[in-house]
């Protein structure tokens, strides 16, 4: 078992629950302690949960195409609330239309996310990256 605690949730007004459950199962199976906030989670709820549970990472999912609006500003808010070391991941159908993923990745990296994932990501691989990133940050 690793000692990683990660807060997981679907951000904004997005109520897609299935992928959220799959992520929870897959990450738990990889030995990560998941604090799952479910769907329609606000930025402050992610941060509140991370503060209380001492989580090292926040994993933000967005499926409905409004990710660009919902996800912006989370890094700044984390800094304001004292989470200066937290690892931020984002993944899903982050934008609408057929935009090139490299472009999307640059956009979300610019918002302060450490890694950006397309819907096709291998979750085992993602869990391994998470372990490395948390180790590097602490």
């Amino acid at each position: 078992m690793s000692d990683i605690t990660a807060v997981l949730g679907v951000i904004g007004s997005d109520c897609h629950a299935v992928g959220n459950k799959i992520l929870d199962h897959a990450l738990t199976a990889e030995g990560i302690k998941v604090v799952n906030l479910g769907v329609m989670v606000s930025q402050d709820e992610f941060i509140n949960a991370a503060v209380e549970t001492g989580a090292q990472a926040i994993l933000v999912a967005s499926i409905y195409g409004h990710g660009e609006i919902d996800c912006d500003g989370l890094r700044g808010r984390c800094l304001e609330r004292g989470l200066d070391k937290v690892v931020l991941y984002v993944g899903g159908n982050l934008v609408i239309g057929k935009r090139d993923f490299a472009e999307v990745e640059t956009l979300f990296r610019g918002m302060g996310y450490d890694r950006v994932f397309p819907p096709t990501v291998d979750l085992k691989e993602m869990a391994n990256l998470l372990k490395q990133d948390v180790a590097a940050r602490s």
């Binding site: 605690t5 302690k33 503060v51 209380e52 549970t53 001492g54 989580a55």
Partner: peptide
């Protein structure tokens, strides 16, 4: 109070 079990300890 403060923190879940195994959670935040700093505060």
């Amino acid at each position: 109070a403060g923190g879940t079990d195994g959670g935040n300890t700093n505060y």
